[in-house]
Design a binder for these strands. Structure first.
Length: 586
RNA sequence: GGCCCCGUCGUCUAGCCCGGUCUAGGACACUACCCUUUCACGGUAGGGACAUGGGUUCGAAUCCCAUCGGGGUCACCA
C-alpha cells in the first residue's frame, strides 16, 4: 500500500501583515511537505468579514514569496500582479479564500443538523454575554447550556422546528452539539493530550452573519482540500479537541497534528502585533506625563485625529498606523514584529529563515569541527526537517542573534549579490518613503554606478550587519557637500590640532600627493598612503589616515580609506581637504 | 480562576526516549587580551545552566512523584 502524499497548509487570516511567528509556522509546514515530497498549501481564512482585506492577503502572499517559502497549492502572485491560484489537477478546491466557500460550509453544516449534531440557537449576543458575566462573577466556568429539547444525535421535532425558523430567516447562530466524552489528541510534538469529558461546550460553528467560525471552516477545508498534516503554534492546542470532535461528527479522518512552541518576546510574553502599539503608547503617555508635549499637540504633529489618538492612548485600539505615525514623529524605533518590519530594517530572507528554523527546531547535527550545526539554507531544511526534533518549550525571539546571523549571511554573499540586494532595498525605501529619503537617491545612484558602486560595496559589505546598516554607515560622508564646514570637534582636536597641528600639516602634505594620484583607485591610493607613511617615518598610518577621515567625512569613522576616497572621487576629496584646512585656519 | 502545555548558561539549544563516556557541549550576547589606519571583522581566554524537594538505582540532567515557576487558552477573532 502506498502512503498518501503529505499535504501541509499555512492558513493565515488576512487582517494585517505576516507576523514573524506566522512566518515560522509557514516555514515549518513548507519544510515538512518538502521533506516528504508532499505539497504545501496556502489558504486564506477571511471569514471575519469586518477585519479581512484582499490587500492584507496580497501582502502576506508577497511576504511569503520574499522569504522564499513558495506554495504548491493556493493563491500566488501572477506576473501581472493579480492573485492567481494553483489547485489540484481535478480542481477539487475551487477557491482557497474561505469567504467564497460558504455554500460548502452550509452543505456540511446542514448535514450536521440533520444528524442531530448541530442546532440553531436564537440567543442574542447580549444574552449570552450576560450569562458569561454572571458565571464569571460567581467564579464559575461558563459553558453554553444545551437546550433540554435538543437530543444528542437525533434530528427530533424540536430541532426540526428550530431549523425551520432559521431557514425562514430568523437571526441565529448554529452551535455544535459537542460529545460528552474524553478526547485524546495524538500530537506528534507534544504526545497525547487528553481533554476530559464535558470540557467542550456547544461552541458556535456558524455566525449570525452566515459565515462559519474558524473551527468549522478549518475542519471542513482541511478535509475538502486534502490536508494530511496540521502543524501550527501551540496557541491552537486548546482548539484541537473541538476540531477532532467536529471531524468525528462529520465522518472525516483526523489529520496528523503537531503543535509547535510559541515565539515570545524577551520578557516572556507572546510576541504580538500589539507590541508595536504598546511601545508607542507607553512612549507617548510618558512624554505627555513629563510635560514634553500634550495630547492635542501630539495629535496635530502626527496627523492623527484627537479622538483616535485618545482612543489609542486609552488602549481602546492597537492601531499599527497610529503607532507608526507616533514613531516617525518622535524618532522612536518600534520593535520589528512582522516580516515587513524585518525587511524594512534590512534583514535578508535567508538569514530570517535560518534563524526562524532554529526557534523551536534543531537539526541535532554537528559541524566537522564538533560544533552544533546552525547555519543552513532552505535546501538543507527541505532535506532534514523533522517533527521529532521540534522542541516543546516556548522560545524567546533574540534580535541580537538574528542580527549576527544576518551579518554572517551578508559577509558570505558574493559582492554582486550583495550589491543587487542592497540596491533593491534602497529602491524599495526610496519608493515607499523614509525619513532619510534625501540621501537615499544619491546613495542608490552610486551603488548602481559601475566603478564607484563596486568600490562602495567592497568597502561596506564586510562591516554591514543589515542593509540598513550598510546605508547608515555611508550615507553621511557619501552625500556630504564638498563645502561642508561641519567637523566633529573632538575629532578635529585629536587628529588635526593635537601635537602642534601635526595632523593638519600631514594632511596638507598628503593633499599634494593625492592631487597627483593617478589612477584614483583603491590600490593606488593604498600604495600612496604606505609610501607617505614611510616617507614621514610614521609609526603607523594612524596619524594621516585619521586626519584624512576627519577632513573628508567630518568624522573619524569610515570604511577603508582606499575605497572611501576612490568612491568620492579626486576632485571631491581635494575640495573637502581644502575646505577643512581653511576651516582650521580661521 | 478552570482546562492544557512547558521548565539545561542572560537567550537559542545539544544531551533526555535507550540512566554511567557530562568535572554538561555549541551558538548569540557579555568581559579581557591580541590583531589593527578608524569602525567592523578575525584570534585567544574567561564568567555563566541541569527550577526545588522527595523517591527508584551501585549510579540521574536523563526514570517516577510532589512543589514552585513560566506560558497558552477560555468570543457570533482566527
Amino acid at each position: 500500500m502506498s502512503t498518501p502524499p503529505v499535504v501541509t497548509r499555512f492558513a493565515p487570516s488576512p487582517t494585517g501583515h505576516l507576523h514573524i511567528g506566522g512566518a515560522r509556522s509557514a516555514l515549518f509546514c513548507w519544510a515538512f511537505a518538502k521533506r516528504h515530497a508532499g505539497k504545501f498549501m496556502l489558504r486564506i481564512e477571511d471569514t471575519d468579514a469586518a477585519r479581512s482585506s484582499v490587500e492584507s492577503a496580497r501582502g502576506i502572499i508577497e511576504d511569503l514569496e520574499w522569504l522564499g517559502i513558495h506554495n504548491d497549492l493556493g493563491p500566488y502572485l501572477a506576473p501581472d500582479g493579480s492573485i492567481a491560484q494553483r489547485d489540484w489537477p481535478d480542481g477539487r478546491v475551487g477557491t482557497f479564500f474561505q469567504a467564497q466557500r460558504v455554500p460548502i460550509y452550509d452543505r456540511e453544516l446542514e448535514r450536521l443538523v440533520r444528524l442531530g449534531r448541530a442546532y440553531p440557537a436564537f440567543d442574542t449576543p447580549e444574552e449570552t454575554e450576560a450569562q458569561r458575566a454572571a458565571a464569571a462573577a460567581a467564579k464559575q466556568t461558563y459553558r453554553y447550556p444545551r437546550p433540554a429539547e435538543i437530543e444528542f444525535g437525533v434530528f427530533n421535532p424540536a430541532l426540526e422546528a428550530r431549523w425551520a425558523r432559521a431557514k425562514a430567516g430568523e437571526r441565529h447562530v448554529v452551535r455544535f452539539a459537542a460529545p460528552r466524552e474524553e478526547i485524546v489528541v495524538h500530537d506528534r510534538v507534544l504526545g497525547d493530550v487528553r481533554i476530559a469529558a464535558g470540557e467542550l461546550d456547544d461552541f458556535v460553528i456558524r455566525k449570525a452573519d452566515g459565515f462559519p467560525t474558524y473551527h468549522f471552516a478549518v475542519v471542513v477545508d482541511d478535509e475538502s482540500m486534502g490536508v494530511t498534516h496540521v502543524l501550527r503554534a501551540q496557541e491552537h492546542l486548546a482548539n484541537t479537541p473541538r476540531h477532532v470532535a467536529l471531524q468525528r461528527a462529520l465522518g472525516y479522518p483526523t489529520p496528523v497534528y503537531g503543535h509547535m512552541p510559541i515565539i515570545c518576546n524577551m520578557d516572556g510574553s507572546k510576541m504580538s502585533k500589539r507590541d508595536k502599539a504598546k511601545v508607542a503608547r507607553q512612549f507617548l503617555s510618558d512624554t505627555i506625563k513629563k510635560g514634553a508635549t500634550t495630547a492635542s499637540a501630539a495629535s496635530a504633529d502626527t496627523g492623527v485625529a484627537p479622538a483616535d489618538l485618545a482612543a489609542f492612548l486609552a488602549k481602546e485600539n492597537d492601531s499599527n498606523e497610529i503607532a507608526a505615525k507616533i514613531a516617525s514623529r518622535f524618532g522612536l524605533t518600534l520593535p520589528e514584529i512582522e516580516v515587513a518590519d524585518f525587511r524594512a530594517s534590512g534583514y535578508l530572507p535567508a538569514a530570517i529563515c535560518n534563524y526562524l528554523a532554529l526557534l523551536g527546531w534543531n537539526p541535532g547535527l554537528k559541524t566537522p569541527d564538533g560544533k552544533d550545526l546552525e547555519k543552513f539554507d532552505m535546501a538543507f531544511l527541505a532535506q532534514h526537517f523533522s517533527l521529532e526534533r521540534i522542541g516543546k518549550q516556548n522560545s524567546k525571539f533574540d534580535r541580537a542573534k538574528l542580527l549576527s546571523f544576518n551579518a554572517d549571511a551578508i559577509a558570505a554573499m558574493p559582492d554582486a549579490d550583495f550589491r543587487a540586494a542592497w540596491a533593491s532595498w534602497l529602491g524599495d525605501k526610496a519608493i515607499h518613503g523614509d525619513a532619510g529619503v534625501a540621501t537615499l537617491r544619491p546613495v542608490l545612484d552610486i551603488v548602481r554606478d559601475a566603478r564607484r558602486g563596486a568600490w562602495l560595496v567592497t568597502a561596506i559589505k564586510a562591516r554591514a550587519k543589515t542593509l540598513r546598516g550598510a546605508y547608515d554607515s555611508c550615507k553621511n560622508w557619501l552625500v556630504r557637500p564638498d563645502d561642508s564646514k561641519s567637523f566633529a570637534p573632538a575629532a578635529v582636536e585629536k587628529h588635526l590640532k593635537a601635537n602642534n597641528g601635526q595632523g593638519a600639516a600631514l594632511l596638507r602634505a598628503f593633499a599634494t600627493r593625492l592631487a597627483a594620484c593617478d589612477p584614483f583607485d583603491p590600490p593606488t591610493i593604498h600604495a600612496l598612503i604606505d609610501a607617505f607613511v614611510k616617507e614621514h617615518a610614521l609609526p603607523n598610518p594612524g596619524p594621516i589616515a585619521q586626519a584624512v577621515r576627519v577632513a573628508v567625512a567630518g568624522e573619524p569613522v569610515t570604511p577603508g580609506l582606499g575605497e572611501t576616497l576612490a568612491v568620492l572621487g579626486k576632485s571631491s576629496v581635494l575640495a573637502r581637504i581644502t575646505r577643512c584646512l581653511e576651516a582650521l585656519a580661521s
